[in-house]
Amino acid sequence: MEPIVRFKDVRKSFGTLEVLKGVTLDIMPGTVTALIGRSGSGKSTALRCINALEQINGGELHVCGRALHNGGFDLRALRQDVGIVFQSYNLFPHLTVAQNIMLAPRRVKKIGKDEARALAEEVLSQVGLLEKADNYPEQLSGGQQQRVAIARSLAMKPKLMLFDEVTSALDPELTGEVLKVIEKLAESGMTMVLVTHEMNFAERVADQIAFMHHGTVWELGSGEMLRAPKTPELQQFVGSGL
């Protein structure tokens, strides 16, 4: 099987600051990959490169059959294949929950209003928030807003979902409800890449964990890796975290 995402010696700089210094990583369809590491290790940047929120400066990056390093790919088609959920939810505050979800399917995929509504209800049930369809985002808790953001992304039927520290703004209880939704998605076979600080969650759900350090994948392995780190850097990282 071909990987759905292939990083090959990917480099990315912001001005003179090189954030990714040669990242190499394969992500297979139907798997969950967790990117862990300290702040500034490049994990969020790597994630954002996958849907071209950041353009890479060197190396090769293939996503869903597109060569992002060459340019000239169809950005909007890429964005339909790759969904992303942000730490700050970024729901549209002027639209109801259902309207938030229906907007892109209606305007991008041009499906009818009724069909879009049915789709919104379907994805809202998936995240357990069907009864909130006609509420506005500000009427929801942080955890609920994040679940709506996940539903909004799901409604575009992406081949791959990215999660950028989606629980970092939430208290432990709300974190739990969001992680449960993500775990359910993982069980349904969705390909996912998540940047997370939830080590227990990463260990339990991820098929592969990439520990990022100094802009590279420092250590790569399964959940077991966190119990028996090979490198002193990962040792120190999990030692301080758990």
């Binding site: 849907n51 929120l53 909007r76 088609a77 964005r79 339909q80 969904g83 992303i84 942000f86 700050s88 970024n90 729901l91 549209f92 907007l103 892109a104 305007r107 991008v108 909004r152 992304s153 575009m156």
Partner: peptide
């Protein structure tokens, strides 16, 4: 983030 979210939804 609003503009980024819209763009990431392929709008």
């Amino acid at each position: 983030g609003q503009i980024e979210a819209a763009s990431c939804l392929a709008l």
